[in-house]
Design a protein around this nucleic acid. Sequence first.
DNA 1: CCCGAACAGAAAATAGCTTTCAGACGTGAC
DNA 2: GTCACGTCTGAAAGCTATTTTCTGTTCGGG
Lengths: 297, 297
Amino acid sequence: MTKAVKETFSPDPAGLAAKVRTLAPSLTRSMRRVAEAVATDPAGCAALTVTGLAERTGTSEATVVRTARLLGYPGYRDLRLALAGLAAHQRSGRAPALTTDITVDDPLADVVAKLAHDERQTLADTAAALDTGQLEAAVTAAAAARRIDVYGVGASGLVAQDLAQKLLRIGLVAHAHSDTHLAVTTAVQLSAGDLAIAVTHSGATRDVIEPLRVAFERGATTVALTGRPKSAVTQYADHVLATSTARESELRPAAMSSRTSQLLVVDCLFVGVAQRTYATAAPALAASYEALAHRHR
Amino acid sequence: MTKAVKETFSPDPAGLAAKVRTLAPSLTRSMRRVAEAVATDPAGCAALTVTGLAERTGTSEATVVRTARLLGYPGYRDLRLALAGLAAHQRSGRAPALTTDITVDDPLADVVAKLAHDERQTLADTAAALDTGQLEAAVTAAAAARRIDVYGVGASGLVAQDLAQKLLRIGLVAHAHSDTHLAVTTAVQLSAGDLAIAVTHSGATRDVIEPLRVAFERGATTVALTGRPKSAVTQYADHVLATSTARESELRPAAMSSRTSQLLVVDCLFVGVAQRTYATAAPALAASYEALAHRHR
DNA sequence: CCCGAACAGAAAATAGCTTTCAGACGTGAC
DNA sequence: GTCACGTCTGAAAGCTATTTTCTGTTCGGG
């Protein structure tokens, strides 16, 4: 025989203020004071115990409980839970006006909120704008490639390295190049069946376009990862993966949001390739995980 | 002397699921079951008493209270209030059902949507969980530092490089090290007035802890950027910046989401420093922009 | 002025939360 | 293997918060 479970009955979490107003005339003096306190400052009251609220309203515990009952809850405990929910709801409703730029004198908490908000926006934009057909083509090319070279300089160089690192981990032959000269000299060795990927936000970075052009002319498959789908880099690209460009400002250079966007595309590319090469990718991932384990204490 | 008022301490109403994930590795079996129940069904758990939740998770009241403490609340009562708030929040938020893992045969469009969703979630969690006090301290230290060394290997190495690159661009003396030997040999040169930053998701990467320890012992200010706020690396860190841990799976290794989180923190750190050194940072940013312009066609 | 009804608060009773303690379970050393 | 040690866990005791009960008070009507 199980013990009877007490159900929490939450009649009307949102319209509590309304209910207080409706009921007010039928409430007694003391009860009204409690009801008003609760309606005025749900968050504050949620933090109080029966005794606390009784003190605050200059009444007794019994009155507080009676009021809670009148408002439709089984007891004060449940009113308090509803109050906490209401408070959370109110907090979230307050849109923090995140549309403004980051300024020199924003407090750090605002900086965090604004950056997070902007990056989230960038991700949503990127996902919405990403052409899955092009991605599909790039994934297929990568999964079948004999060898993959990735070009990127500056901030995009890190993205290029990230992609190469990931692909290496699932057993593909991938290299990232940040040095134009080296990139060009290795690009001449590519041919049909190889894949070259250029990462550049502006789409106009010569150091990256150059090796991609060489790879393109040698017959390798080429992919451009860029925020400007009609820029110079795309003329040598078989497939173009578009990244999104967010609002930028003095304290938030373009490099920052483009990176977020580029990395999402890189992740998609990676997962796509891992799916298609699952038979080799899965054990490779597991093995690299194992290998790293003993590097940790 | 007035009676001490017990404050309701609500450390992290939004990112609770994230916190559970972050703390999970350091939790014991029973505690983890409680934490998971709470993260999985906040609304349901909010309706339960200590005893009820203990029964539901097959543990004891003591364990439930202990878990509540670990999650940062003074006791179960307060956790329950936070849960009620969270539940209300969820009801209004209506999250779409993107909660499933990425599988081998997901079409690419789904992969994109799921990855974008997860990364957005990670960003929100990170922002919610980031301790602005610690960030403030790190920013102040960085802005005043004679020299800044950043340590990171593997995926975190790229994050370390990203941070160093950014700080360099606003005229600070910053270097990223991926080579443990080099990192240690440069760390011995640090002293009070210098800053060392370690980036490691697990918090247990020896190659990164070692140089940080050296820097710490030499009297430099030290910062750890980690997803495990109670891990080995933090014992040598003056300030700990917590990154968030997302759900991971076979096709989505931890490295992927930790990177997103780490980069957000890096951006916050960077913008904070740029604000505090605005007089030199602004012209430096403008100058680096100019300098790059002619590298583009 | 007295009576009755409703109200309010004090105090008792209970339910729920927290703390303590001792046994159980691993873990590492010898 | 086994012994010692530290950690984890749940049972029960202890305490706080909530609920109920009960009695004094107030106010309107006879």
